[in-house]
Structure formats: C-alpha cells, structure tokens
Simulated assay, not measured.
Amino acid sequence: MNYRNVTVAGSGVLGSQIAYQTAFKGFHVSVYDINDESLEKAKERIMALKPRYQADLGASEADVNAAYDRMTFSSDLSRATAEADLVIEAIPEVVQMKKDFYRELGAAAPEKTIFATNSSTLLPSQFAEETGRPEKFLALHFANEIWRNNTAEIMKHPGTDMDVFHEVIEFAKAIGMVALPLHKEQPGYILNSLLVPLLEAAQMLLIREVADPETIDKTWMVATGAPLGPFAILDVVGINTAYNIGHAKAQVTGHDEYKKVAELLKSEYIDKNKLGRATGEGFYTYPNPSFADPDFLKS
C-alpha cells in the first residue's frame, strides 16, 4: 500500500472529519468542494476538531497543527486530484449527483488513482460504470466522529480488483481505523443495516405522534443502556443526510410516511438551519443538550 496523497471530495461534516483524520495520521490531504464558500466552512469545521483531538485522544497542540498543515483546499477538481493515490468521495446521498461527479472525476484524476465512495446507503455498483475504472472503485464507509468511532467498512462490488480491495483495507488501518471487510454488496453495509431501521422507526413514531423525540430517546437509553437515543444520533449524522435518505425513499417507494418524514425535516429543521450538532441545534440544542443532563434518565 503506497498511498501518500489522498483527496477527499465533499467537505461536509463527515468529509471534513475523514480529511482531518487522514492528515492526522501523516498523509497529505487535498480537500475538494464545489466552491470557496464551502471550503471556508470546511476549514472552520476542521479547526473545531483540533480541541476534540486534544481532549479525546490526548494529542498535543503541535500534533493537531501539523495535521492541518498537511492539508490543502481547492475548488478545482483537476488540481485537487493531480497527485491523488486515493480519492474518497463524501458528497450528498443523491444518485444523479454522484453519477455526474464520477464522470467528472474519472476524466480529471490520474490513471493510477483509486476511487472510494463513503456513501451510507448506496452501492458502489450503482456508480462503477461512471467512474471509467470500475476495477479501481469500491466503498469505504466511516462512522461520524471518526476519531472516536473508528470503524471503516470496506465493501467491494463484483468488478473490484482484489488487490485494490486489500490495499484499501491496509489504508484504513493506516489512518487508525478498525478495518471491517465486506465481501458482498449490502445496502447500508453492516453499521447502517443495523442503525437505519432504528432511526427510521424513531422518525415514524414521531410523525405518527406516538411520542416526542426526548421520550423516544429516553426509552431507548434507559432500556438498552445506550449513550444516545435515535434523535441524538440523527443530530450527529446531520439532518440534511436524514432528509436526503427519507426523500429518496419517498420517491422510490411512494410511501406516504417517508414523504411526511422528509417534509417535517425540511420545514421544521433544514429551513430553520437546525441541522444538528454542526449548527448547534437540531432535535436538541448544543452544547448542552437535555439528554446529557444527569436527571434526563430519571423518572
């Protein structure tokens, strides 16, 4: 595994985390996004990660500053990928957007470059043809708060070269992840195959007016000992991601309840800039959400 230069395409919440974690582990990282405004927001997100790494990992100030110094930012895809050994795509969960991006990426990136999608719910085989290099394409999926929740699910599609599959497993280990190989395509991988039904069930309980988010979370936390309930998890994942998934399912299935979920997330959260932890408010208000109160789990 000779990867030294990594491009992360998409600088949202998780894209920014992937980029910084990779740089923290000694790789040179180029962050790509569609415009300079998005990149400025990414820089703010990444700067905010420095104290988290110091508090959670015991990193020194020199460590976190050196990681940032190994990063560059560009809204020019050819420039961002010029030296890339690996491109990790972390753009929104919209099929046509990803297809268009991979066509552009395939034309811009060097022939040597491996492509990996961080898609949470979509399969690499959906985009393999658009990459122009299906044998060098696979999925590499991370959990939010990557420096603490350090899983990396590596999922090949039927056309992925096995050498590439094993190289990306080694790369995941090199950036401090617990590498979890998947040998067959599975929508949602392992993590989201378990997590998404929980989050969907919570949202259905909400739109059916069975209970409010705090009560639903409290039930899950008390009964299972989990540190977070589903709505607190949705705030970490980001309301935009939850909306994109719900909206896509509404279109595919025609299911009225998925449509109601998407409408609720759009009108009551996204339109009001309540995007979760990233903006300081989602289902809860941060930095002091009610579920963190010692009395939250008491009767």
Results as ranks from 00 to 15, higher is better:
257 E>I: 05
295 D>A: 13
222 V>F: 05
112 K>P: 02
240 N>H: 15
165 F>M: 01
262 A>G: 01
283 F>N: 11
190 I>K: 11
113 T>G: 00
274 K>C: 05
64 V>E: 07
141 H>C: 01
133 R>K: 15
266 K>E: 03
144 N>T: 05
88 I>S: 04
191 L>C: 03
79 R>H: 11
168 V>T: 01
207 I>N: 06
128 A>I: 08
45 R>K: 15
94 V>F: 10
240 N>A: 08
181 P>G: 05
12 G>E: 09
161 D>R: 14
138 L>W: 10
259 K>Y: 09
197 P>G: 00
219 T>S: 08
140 L>W: 13
197 P>D: 02
222 V>M: 03
61 E>Q: 10
104 E>Q: 14
251 Q>F: 05
122 L>F: 06
98 K>H: 06
245 I>M: 12
64 V>Q: 07
258 Y>G: 04
11 S>N: 07
104 E>W: 03
144 N>R: 12
2 N>D: 09
134 P>Q: 12
172 A>N: 07
258 Y>M: 04
211 A>T: 06
168 V>R: 00
36 D>Q: 14
130 E>T: 09
41 K>P: 00
21 Q>A: 05
173 K>Y: 00
277 R>I: 14
51 P>F: 10
180 L>S: 07
278 A>V: 15
41 K>L: 08
161 D>L: 09
272 K>N: 05
111 E>P: 00
206 L>S: 07
32 Y>D: 04
274 K>Q: 14
155 M>G: 01
89 E>S: 08
179 A>K: 06
98 K>A: 00
177 M>F: 02
29 V>Y: 13
217 D>H: 13
211 A>S: 13
203 Q>C: 03
279 T>K: 15
10 G>M: 07
174 A>V: 02
47 M>F: 08
95 V>M: 05
245 I>D: 08
240 N>D: 15
33 D>L: 03
252 V>H: 12
202 A>L: 04
228 L>G: 02
286 Y>K: 12
229 G>S: 09
14 L>D: 07
29 V>M: 09
4 R>T: 02
6 V>D: 00
26 G>F: 11
281 E>C: 14
29 V>E: 06
299 S>V: 02
41 K>N: 11
223 A>G: 07
3 Y>S: 02
270 I>M: 06
289 P>T: 13
88 I>E: 02
133 R>E: 06
72 T>V: 11
262 A>R: 08
144 N>E: 06
111 E>A: 02
94 V>C: 06
231 F>P: 02
167 E>K: 11
281 E>L: 12
88 I>Y: 04
97 M>C: 02
233 I>E: 08
261 V>S: 07
286 Y>H: 08
232 A>W: 15
169 I>N: 04
33 D>N: 13
62 A>F: 07
200 E>R: 13
83 E>M: 09
162 M>S: 14
107 A>H: 08
284 Y>K: 12
152 A>N: 01
265 L>W: 15
169 I>P: 01
209 E>P: 01
244 N>K: 12
284 Y>L: 02
189 Y>L: 03
214 E>K: 15
96 Q>K: 14
278 A>F: 09
28 H>S: 11
53 Y>T: 03
233 I>H: 13
55 A>Q: 10
295 D>Y: 10
52 R>E: 06
71 M>I: 07
194 L>P: 01
229 G>W: 14
234 L>G: 11
117 T>E: 00
66 A>G: 02
137 F>C: 05
121 T>H: 12
44 E>W: 09
5 N>W: 09
149 N>A: 04
296 F>D: 06
27 F>V: 04
167 E>Q: 12
247 H>G: 00
